[in-house]
């Protein structure tokens, strides 16, 4: 079955010359600005995290595929993408071994057990993050720090880093809120706030997203329906929509994870349903949930719903008319 040429897409079909390695290489290029921003804001520890994530994922792919005597596919760059994404969705100061183990979980359990690239039900990087949150909740939650630029005073006193709550955590605890959130817009846009390694700088992420759009690897359907839904729902509940769009992992999730080909619906109608579903869940978890941020869980829950969405969003067969009673 693995070698069959059965590719499931709606018509029309055009044969292109894009293959998996070149596509994944483009994703890596698109992620680089956000990675660099993460290293710039959070210092050398961020670099260690990124290396640990990639090493964990590529190493796990090699070892698991050798163990199950399957062709080793580390050459297709997909494990590198997963590794970078795992480091990017975890806080910058989690111990490197957590990043490595999340990568091993993401590749070994979430991807390869299910048959490898193209057959995974869940986005491996987000499942790795959910795994880290469930297994080491305390360690994974205290890794948030202020960006290096705000830490000069701490370094002078011989402190490595000052842990800090993210803007969404502050919102959840009621320490900020109300309507005057505009003072957060600029730091959130540039990335000068506490947050996961690769999610803070909206600017760097958008540069990467524009690259992927220009290369036509992703379409705007999922990201736009996702982001607009979050803005609308949070505005309906009297929150500042721009703050919610810029903060947390929304831009990273919407452009780089919800658009994952394998774990998102095939056709346009399904993709819009998928984006809206992610948006509603993210907004509701942020406003009422037990966690400050809901992007990872919303995308995972909607990943699980993708086969069902595809079932119901199937295009009508040519010439099909509604049966008369």
């Amino acid at each position: 079955m693995a070698d069959s040429k059965l590719i499931v897409t709606p018509a029309p079909h055009i044969r292109g010359n894009i293959d998996t390695p070149s596509l994944m290489r483009d994703v890596v290029i698109a992620l680089l600005p956000a990675c660099l921003a993460g290293v710039y804001f959070f210092g050398g520890k961020a670099l260690i995290s990124l290396v640990a994530g990639v090493a964990g994922c590529v190493g796990a792919e090699f070892v698991f595929e050798r163990m199950s005597k399957k062709p080793v596919t580390i050459g297709d760059w997909s494990a590198v993408v997963t590794g970078l994404l795992i480091a990017m969705v975890l806080p910058p100061h989690v111990p490197a071994w957590i990043v490595v183990l999340s990568g091993v979980f993401a590749i070994g359990i979430v991807k390869l057990l299910f048959g490898g690239l193209g057959y995974n039900v869940f986005n491996p990087a987000l499942a790795g993050r959910a795994f880290a949150t469930a297994a080491w909740s305390a360690l994974a939650a205290t890794g948030y720090i202020w960006p290096a630029s705000a830490q000069g005073a701490a370094w002078a006193r011989g402190i490595d880093a000052v842990t800090s709550a993210t803007p969404l955590t502050l919102l959840k605890m009621g320490e900020i809120g109300g309507t005057s959130m505009s003072r957060f817009y600029m730091p959130l846009f540039l990335g000068n706030v506490a947050g996961s390694l690769g999610e803070t700088s909206a600017l760097a992420l958008l540069i990467g997203a524009v690259y992927l759009l220009w290369r036509t690897h992703i379409s705007l359907r999922i990201p736009m329906s996702y982001i607009i839904t979050v803005a609308v729902v949070t505005a309906l509940y009297g929150q500042d929509p721009l703050f919610h769009v810029l903060s947390g992992g929304l831009i990273l999730g919407a452009f780089f994870m919800a658009t994952d080909y394998v774990t998102s619906p095939i056709n346009a109608k399904g993709q819009v349903i998928f984006g809206i579903g992610c948006g509603v869940l993210t907004a509701l978890i942020r406003l009422f949930g037990g966690y400050p941020e809901g992007v990872a869980y919303s995308i995972l829950i909607m990943n699980a719903a993708v086969p069902m969405i595809d079932r119901f969003a199937r295009p009508k067969r040519f010439g099909e008319v509604k049966a008369r009673a």
């Binding site: 499942a127 959910a130 978890i285 406003l287 009422f288 869980y297 995972l300 829950i301 699980a304």
Partner: peptide, 25 residues
Amino acid sequence: PIALVTTGLLAMAFLGFSGFDVARF
């Protein structure tokens, strides 16, 4: 086996609902 693993991952995704304040919602 894969059904059980899938169930586990599904349950992990549904962790997102844990602590959801239904009364306030």
